[in-house]
Design a protein around this nucleic acid. Structure first.
Lengths: 222, 222
DNA sequence: GTATTATTAGAGTATATACTCTAGGCAGTC
DNA sequence: GACTGCCTAGAGTATATACTCTAATAATAC
């Protein structure tokens, strides 16, 4: 593997594990057993590494959220979208953690991320539309659909932060993909009241599959 | 005003403006025109300042979310809760921005914040319960109510990050309390399907008051 | 083989950051 | 007026961090 690629992979790994703020370029070089000079031969600065990682993340999610226009959606499609999005969140989980700082330090990233968000929101809205076409949920006025899509986005992008901060374990790193996917349970909760009678039961079963196992982080009230 | 108190106020101000990560103890001292030594006479370290600020934040929100047990809730109560919570978020807006890092660097804060989250979730759930008692929303099973409460929490705590990252303006600081309160619109969106016929119209009017003015940040799809 | 280009090592640097240390001022009190 | 306790100044420090520079090595082209 090329050094450049190795740098990206290692950076992602370290960022995910320890948080971008806690990972220096020297750490990355040390982790790869290469010299700092070598790292800076391949990347002008830390921001550039992060930007490259973002481009990969963006590509992945755009790929997942490519909604077929020639056919209607099935429940399997919905499951795929949800699973994929949370897989993506997991693989690039450092990103949302320090998002604001990252966008403040790189105007390029800020612009791209803003457009990325808008694409995601449009995709979510489109999924809702096609779900109502498919008779899974009741049709909703445009305005409501777009507000709902935004809520879905907020729940998805904030679910990990919630887990990490509300988690009972004291070790911050102890977070699994399984727990992350309980976010799907939360997203499906948003859709419950809009389900058609024809699909209600099947979606509720789907949702049940992601129910947090006890002790659930949200339930335990002190 | 005592120096100690001035340090807390100035720190909060600077943290909110520039983000905790971009504000050093030296900045704080300089901003107050006191010496670093003086600052460290009053606080052992930066974490201690942040912890004190959190205690104030916690106290404020706990005060806002003190649900009266001897009477039922009105729409005015609901409005008050929503307005207050977003006021609180605004006043301590630096906090959620760097939350994960802050909790990782201070176990005391991690523990307290976890309990704080649980209290908030319990309060939201209680508000839902009392709203159904008051005939504002239809009663829901415990399980659904708790999942909904969590979604409300996720939307509330992530709304500001969304604004800051999806905002069209390039200046990161250009965010107003008014925009922040459009989060109320999003929260009320969550409740729409559960409204009773008796209250539906009034709540929809309330929601309308917080509708984002065009160009709305979420709507403009690229 | 030789010239050229791409890659790498590793020491080094300017700056920043959290925090320390010592000396001293000032207000009250006897 | 000197003692005491609280507060403050400001120079200083150890460490970290992002990044640079030079020289050497490996790969490739001719």
């Amino acid at each position: 593997m090329k050094t450049r690629e190795k740098i990206i992979l290692s950076s992602l790994e370290l960022f995910n594990e320890r948080g971008e703020r806690n990972v220096t370029t020297n750490h990355i070089a040390a982790h790869l057993a290469i010299s700092p000079g070598n790292l800076y031969y391949h990347f002008r600065n830390k921001s550039d590494i992060i930007y490259e990682i973002f481009l990969e993340y963006e590509k992945l999610v755009d790929y997942y959220l490519d909604i077929p226009q020639d056919r209607s959606l099935t429940l399997e499609d919905l499951t795929f979208y949800l699973e994929s999005v949370f897989d993506g969140l997991w693989s690039y989980r450092f990103f949302h953690r320090d998002l604001e700082y990252l966008l403040d330090s790189d105007p390029r990233l800020r612009k791209d991320y803003r457009e990325f968000t808008n694409r995601c929101l449009a995709a979510i809205s489109q999924i809702f539309e096609k779900m109502s076409e498919a008779g899974i949920i009741e049709p909703q006025p445009e305005e409501l659909r777009s507000a709902m899509s935004l809520n879905v986005w907020l729940v998805i992008t904030n679910w990990m932060a919630f887990l990490k901060t509300a988690h009972a374990a004291d070790e911050p790193a102890s977070l699994s993909l399984t727990e992350l996917k309980q976010g799907i349970y939360q997203v499906l909760t948003l859709e419950i009241p809009y389900l058609t009678p024809a699909y209600r039961e099947r979606v509720m079963e789907l949702r049940e599959r992601y129910r947090p196992s006890l002790p659930e982080p949200s339930g335990a009230v002190v």
